[in-house]
């Protein structure tokens, strides 16, 4: 466990150095033609494959921020190979992150199903007699009327103790959930922990292949791979079946907690489209009143 942590830190520092070197090009260069081809940043685009350089048509673009850009990679080979460039919607992958909203989302996901069964008996629930333990006066001792009072630690009950069951259920409004999702996706993208691949197809069922791939690309020990259908390709399913820190997830299961739990997030191109479509629908819907009605506290 300890070794893993140290390893993770070391990897993190390597990634940080890489980030620093790549930062200048990715922020300033906005056009599709200005591709950074420095040797230490990314390998050169594979000449065998036609690069998918087309910019996607993004809907509902805001006025004052530009689309983000991301490489399209492939899982077909172990080495880091780029096969194209894509644009990401700034409202989904480039928002100013709200850390408090992310924290709220994580708290919500942790607590929504949590019920505390910690229980302490009150003085009335303790077994034993209700007789006065000794006379009020004449013995030179303290006055007591009941052995079950919380003053008696062995026979007495507990005042204001935990009571079971205590549910920690609460409802987070749809807007807070959307802010949590966009913030987390933006953070993942900004910290180079978001990678976009053409598909989840790999050439073999061997679990060593995916381990080597993650190792070679410095994707951190834990990886979350997201695709649109919940029926994933056979090879990737078999390969990652026994590796507990490399997980697959359909788009409909994507959540803040899982994204933060894994170091790296891998999205397929289709998944990116689907996520954008779903989140943009929520961000631009006009029946806010009707949707919010459910979450009002004083109904």
């Amino acid at each position: 466990m300890m070794n893993l942590r140290i390893l993770n830190r070391l990897r993190g520092s390597v990634v940080n150095v890489l980030r620093a070197s790549r930062f200048s090009s990715s922020v300033e260069g906005t056009g599709a033609k200005e591709i950074n081809t420095e040797p230490n940043s990314r390998p050169i685009i594979d000449p065998d494959v036609n690069p998918l350089m087309k910019t996607r048509e993004l809907k509902l673009l805001p006025k004052f921020s530009e689309p983000r850009q991301a490489w399209i990679e492939t899982l077909n080979c172990i080495d880091d190979k780029i096969i194209g460039l894509t644009t990401l919607h700034p409202e989904v992958f480039g928002v100013g992150p709200r850390i408090d909203m992310i924290h709220l989302n994580v708290k919500w996901q942790r607590n929504i199903r949590y019920v505390s069964f910690a229980h302490a008996k009150t003085r009335h629930e303790m077994p034993g007699t209700r007789r006065k333990p000794r006379p009020q006066k004449g013995l030179g001792m303290s006055r007591h009327g009941d052995l079950r009072s919380p003053l008696f630690t062995k026979t007495g009950g507990v005042a204001h103790g935990p009571r079971s069951p205590t549910p920690h259920f609460f409802v987070l409004s749809i807007w807070e959930r959307i802010i949590g999702l966009t913030s987390t996706l933006s953070i993942k993208h900004a910290q180079d922990d978001l990678h976009i691949v053409d598909s989840l197809d790999i050439p073999t069922e061997n679990k060593g292949y995916i381990q080597d791939l993650v190792e070679a690309r410095k994707w951190g020990p834990s990886v979350l791979m997201v695709d649109v259908p919940d029926l994933m390709p056979r090879n990737i399913t078999v390969a990652t079946d026994e590796i507990k820190h490399i997980n697959l997830m359909p788009v409909y299961g994507l959540n803040v907690y899982s994204m933060l739990k894994h170091d790296t997030l891998i999205l397929t191109v289709d998944a990116v489209k689907r996520i954008e479509e779903k989140i943009l629908y929520q961000l631009n819907r006009i029946d806010k009143e009707k949707v919010c009605g459910k979450f009002e506290i004083d109904q």
């Binding site: 953070i187 900004a190 910290q191 933060l260 739990k261």
Partner: peptide
Amino acid sequence: TVQMLRALPRIGL
């Protein structure tokens, strides 16, 4: 924000 995030350690649970 992006500039700041890139200098910060990875945000996780």
